[in-house]
Amino acid sequence: MRNVNSLQVIPGVDQVEAEKKPFTRALPSALAVVPVSMLFGILAYRADWSILEILAASVLGFTGSGQLALLPLADSNTGFLTMLLICASINSRYIPIALTTQHRLPSKLLSKWFAAHMLGDEAYATEKASDSTANVFTIRFTIFFFWVVSGVAGGALSKAIPDSWISGGIHLGYPASVVLVYLSVTQIKTRMHGGYTRPALLMMVCLALAAVFVIFLGPIYFWVPSVLLTTLILHWFRYNE
């Protein structure tokens, strides 16, 4: 019932894209996170982590940017609470995302925990409100699996990768940024369709405000206030135009 309502809220869903198999839909995102995860594996291995430790961090600590952020902190023997505070701040954006996607998860407790743990930016941007639980699980697991395998592969290949690739200016994380921008634009286009009289102008204003928040509050602490303000603006214009 909720899925039917969700479809009514979000008109103009790309049926062709939605009808693709979930694995096929998740594959480009999964491939895009490979260099980022490999980078984590390489850096961790060079910081004297074993392959088993890289595997454990990728499986249990699947947080993308959080993993990369904690590596230098681990190197300087930072305490648990400091690490938790920093990592939770970086990933605080997942709280509203997890809340609003909870109905897409399996009903069995362990599967539910696992599916919730595998939630990532790329998976969230790939999923659709009309997706079945199985589709959501497949999308999340595909990206999670590629992330874990790539991290371990990065560690294993660490010695074979030239130092210049890491320190010489090749931006290995860029494909993941590109994929996230692509998916975000398609999701915004779908959701804003029909709800606003001047969507392009409104989008530009929201983007500019969010950019100001990033610049002044920094990339860690801008998320909550900026998302809240953007939500209020979008809400106000949706019901007042």
Binding site: R93, I188, R191, C206, L207, V214, T230
Partner: peptide, 9 residues
């Protein structure tokens, strides 16, 4: 939509 706009920014 707000989350995705913030992703882009």
């Amino acid at each position: 939509t707000a989350v995705f706009l913030n992703f882009i920014a």
